[in-house]
Simulated scan of single mutants.
Amino acid sequence: MLFEKKYLSWLFIFFGLVFALDNFNVLRLHWALYIILAGLLFLLVYFLKRELTFFLLPGVMLTVYGFLFMYCALSQWQNMSLLWPVLFLAPGLGFMLLYFLQKRETYFLVPGGLLLLFGLLFFLRRLTVIKYWPLLLMGIGIALLIRHHVTKT
């Protein structure tokens, strides 16, 4: 069986314990910490059993999003207008880790690279030098269409 029941059992026990401690005011956790803990737990399962690759991507995403949300919640959400490109970077990082930690399959590399590229471009879009990057995207699109049309005929 690819996914052993013992991992699911430990997930339920862990989250049950954390929620019980929070409900009985033994341990008060910020809501974003639950997202971080879930992500770290997914990553732990992946690193304990490497063939469970489907835990890596949500583990990375939840951990990064949890830290983003924790920071934004502590700073009154005013920085989210600048940090929203992290929403692209987190899955991009997850796909790239899948690519580098697994069999280097291009179906992980392409979406990972694109998401990282878009995240970085959205972060850098405020710089005047990079303000013309959408023209580059349109040029690439036009070149791909021309190439497709030429190879089709």
Rank of each mutant, 00 (worst) to 15 (best):
L33T: 14
A32L: 02
D22T: 11
P58M: 05
V26I: 15
F42I: 03
L56Y: 04
T63E: 06
F42V: 01
L27T: 00
R50V: 03
N23W: 09
A20R: 06
L52G: 00
M61A: 13
L48M: 13
A32M: 01
G59Y: 04
V45F: 14
Y34H: 12
D22F: 07
W31N: 11
L57K: 01
G59E: 03
T53H: 08
N25I: 01
E51S: 11
L21G: 06
T63A: 15
L52Y: 15
D22E: 14
F15P: 03
L52S: 00
F24N: 11
A20Y: 15
F42G: 00
Y46S: 01
F67M: 13
F19P: 01
R50N: 11
A38L: 14
L56V: 10
L17G: 09
H30F: 13
Y46C: 02
A32C: 04
I36H: 06
L43W: 08
F15S: 13
G66W: 02
T53E: 15
L40A: 14
L48E: 14
L21W: 11
Y65G: 01
L68K: 07
F47W: 12
I36Q: 09
V45S: 00
K49I: 03
F15E: 07
V64H: 05
F24P: 04
F15A: 12
T53L: 08
T53G: 09
F55V: 02
T63P: 10
